[in-house]
Structures are given as C-alpha cells and as structure tokens.
C-alpha cells in the first residue's frame, strides 16, 4: 500500500475507523479538559468550592459560576462551530466533576481524612445543560451568552441547595450559634487555612434583608455573560486551524 492509498477498503471499515477515532478524541478531549479546567478552577474558585463552610449565599454564589463558565464557553466554541456538537459545556463540567470527585475522595478524604460532607464539590451540571441546549436551539453565540450565561448563574444556587441546605441548620455550641457547615469547618482542623481567610458573608449587600442569594445569583449571571463572550472567543481562537496552509478558517 502506498502513502496515497486509503487505509480503509470499504465503507464499513471507514465507519469503524471513524467511530474509533471519535472515542479516542473524546477520551483525549475529556481528560485534557479535566486537567486544564480542574487546575483553572482550583486556582480561581479554590476554597469556595473545597469547603462547605465557604459555600455562602453571597460570594460563593457570585464567584463560582463566574470562574467556572470559562472552559465551557471555550469548548462550546470549538465543538459547535467545528462540529455542531452542543455538548461542550456538559463535557467540561462532567470532566471537572470527575476530577474533583477523584481529588476530594482520594486526597481530601483518603489522604487527609476530611469527611466528604465538608469537602464536596459544587454542582454545575444543570447550568451546563442550559448552556448546551440554548446553544443548540439558538445556534447563536450571543443568545447563548446572554440567556445561557444568565441561566448558568441563576440555576447555580438552586441546584446546590438540596445538598447544602442540611448543612445550614443552626446549632448552639458552647454558647454560640453555628450552622453545621461552620461547625464542620471549626471541628475538622485546617492548619493552613486560618478562619480569617474565609471570605464569606462579606460585602455591602445589606439592603435585601435575608434574600441576598437571588441578588448574588443575578449579579453572577450578569458577569457570567461577559466572561462567556470572552472565553468563547478564546475557544474559537484556540480551535483555529489557520496553521494548515489550505484552511484559513
């Protein structure tokens, strides 16, 4: 067989090779995103995502969606404009959560013995599905950024509430009130994480009484729209194939 001949000899073989190629690329993409997105998210979301006593109704709700929409926007740009595949956001979040769960279970629990109920990751999958479906239905980057990005921010708190609400029950302990999450953070000693670096319930958002989570979620969604645009362009640029002579797209 010469170099100019096809490697396959029938349509069935071509389909089989194509499917093998699909799974190989999907696996490589999944693991590459897992690594890159996980590092990015640990560096930017960090403690807000690590600890239950950082998951507050102000900064956690605000920060995590904003820093988490980055890779989904970029991978969506690649998979949608090149392949019309509306799975970029979900693929990213599934990869991130798999990496996070491996880390939390193997390291946080298995190595340093923090109970999982203090170090579980935030839930991002509902937001990813909204992003992917809005992109698929609209075919528009602008609409996905505006409607999808806003939805991504707005659904974050409700999608996590079933898991964190039990930890926000109040406890009286030695004459002070805690939530169970606060008490976990106090009980399970983090030598390198003193209490004062915990950025929770800070800020000047005091005119909405106790209902600050929806306001924070709206703000988070709004900023997520902007970040989506930015990272979508990063993704488009990164997925470019201009380095191939006959493909200037």
């Amino acid at each position: 067989m010469s170099a100019s001949q096809s490697a396959v000899r029938s349509r069935a073989e071509a389909v089989a090779v194509s499917r093998t190629f699909d799974w190989m690329i999907l696996f490589v993409l999944f693991t590459a995103v897992l690594g890159g997105y996980h590092i990015h998210f640990m560096l930017t979301g960090g403690d807000w995502d690590f600890w239950s006593d950082w998951k507050d109704r102000r900064l956690w709700v605000t920060v995590v969606p904003i820093v988490a929409i980055t890779f989904p926007a970029a991978v969506q740009a690649c998979l949608w404009w090149r392949y019309r595949l509306p799975i970029g956001a979900t693929l990213c979040v599934l990869a991130l959560l798999l990496g996070e769960w491996i880390n939390r279970y193997m390291n946080f629990w298995g190595w340093t013995y923090f109970p999982i109920n203090i170090c579980f990751p935030s839930q991002l999958i509902p937001g990813a599905i909204i992003l992917d479906v809005v992109l698929m239905l609209s075919g528009s980057m602008t609409l996905t950024a505006v409607a999808g990005g806003l939805g991504w921010g707005l659904i974050f708190y409700p999608s996590n509430w079933p898991v964190i609400a039990p930890l926000h029950q109040p406890v009286e302990y030695n004459g002070m009130m805690f939530t169970l999450a606060d008490l976990s953070g106090y009980h399970y000693v983090r030598t390198g994480t003193p209490e004062y670096i915990r950025m929770v319930e800070k800020g000047t958002l005091r005119t909405f009484g106790k209902d600050v989570a929806p306001v924070s979620a709206f703000f988070s969604g709004f900023v997520s729209v902007i970040i989506y645009f930015l990272w979508h362009f990063f993704g488009k640029w990164f997925a470019g194939t201009g380095f191939i002579a006959d493909d200037a797209s």
Binding site: A165, E201, K202
Partner: peptide, 21 residues
C-alpha cells in the same frame, strides 16, 4: 427539577441560617 427540588428542600429544612462570620 431544580424548582421542585428547591421547594421540597425548603419544606424538609424550614429553618436554615447563613454561615456565621
């Protein structure tokens, strides 16, 4: 699902407080 879960969670845990800081 998220709207329903938010409601059922609030019913299951009617008393919750913000993190203390």
């Amino acid at each position: 699902a998220n709207a329903v879960l938010m409601g059922t969670t609030n019913e299951a845990y009617p008393v919750t407080t913000p993190l203390q800081a």
